[in-house]
Design a protein around this nucleic acid. Sequence first.
DNA 1: ACTAACATGTAATCTGTTACATGATTGA
DNA 2: TCAATCATGTAACAGATTACATGTTAGT
Lengths: 175, 175
Amino acid sequence: MLEFAILGFLADAPLHGYELRKRVAALTGHIRPIADGTLYPTIKRMERAGLLRRDVQAGQMAAPRHVLTLSPAGHAELLRQLHTPEELFITDENRWFTLLAFLRHLEDPADQAAVLHRRLSFLTRPGSFFWDGERPLRADDFPDDPFRQGLFRIATATSRTEIAWLREMLRSLTR
Amino acid sequence: MLEFAILGFLADAPLHGYELRKRVAALTGHIRPIADGTLYPTIKRMERAGLLRRDVQAGQMAAPRHVLTLSPAGHAELLRQLHTPEELFITDENRWFTLLAFLRHLEDPADQAAVLHRRLSFLTRPGSFFWDGERPLRADDFPDDPFRQGLFRIATATSRTEIAWLREMLRSLTR
DNA sequence: ACTAACATGTAATCTGTTACATGATTGA
DNA sequence: TCAATCATGTAACAGATTACATGTTAGT
């Protein structure tokens, strides 16, 4: 997940770790940035795997910056993950949003459409949150629990908005 | 997270592990159930911690069921976590929804309102997803990237729905 | 002078995953 | 008879967290 986001951000421009950390935090939408203890070891691992290159820039800075640049292998890996995302990236809200943020890097609209279509299938198939077996849930399926009613109301609004957007995008991409 | 959900479900009724797994999966909204390798060790840990009791029921079943019952200590722990949730449960979508699903277990409406209020503060404070510094974001802050525009549209709809619901609930709880 | 933000890193730990392992029951 | 579902569990590993560790620069 973090590795994927790093690939995505570096595909736009080389960045150093600290900047990467802020961007990931902003994308995730929360105040909570990823922990240092997560970021730097991940960068090191990706460097070892040949996904990125590190150039240390000494100078008038707080500390020497390690500028990270995506390697061709890193770019290929990003495209590969965008092209055929694992189920987790389709079904997990956070991962899906991260994937969306970088989906423009897939050049072929048909490939983009294929990914959106997988998400649409997931959202509309019985068995997900809004279904009790074959029957779609309704707010009054949660009697005497206003909190679960709220939960349902929020989830429904999100789902509806996303499904509408997905259909629009699919129309315009396959046109 | 899983431990919290287990506390919540067992507060309603004693259940065995397999049933618990299905309920957690249904709550999370995804097809993907939690892995066996997560569930049973967690149950064991909670048992050791005195949060729940296990009664093995032999019989005409597929395998002997281990019926799990919340102990008084477990119930106290659930209330404690509901009463003063960590920041993660306020800021992380998944955890927040899980918390909402069990918030009715807090008996005092004032306590419930306090928790909702923390979430409302989080959603409306500058610095979260919808803000660029002090300025609220708009869809055209993402030129040439229809996917990030979609992301923004979905996130905005969710946020608006949730904020509206939170205000309604807070009015009715503090009335 | 002090605090916040910049900038990178390690060690111990927690939480979860996948893969493996076993076996009974129910329905097609 | 065969597959799906029920039911519980372990071992190895992945990914992330917290706490610790260090030092600079810019603003109040």
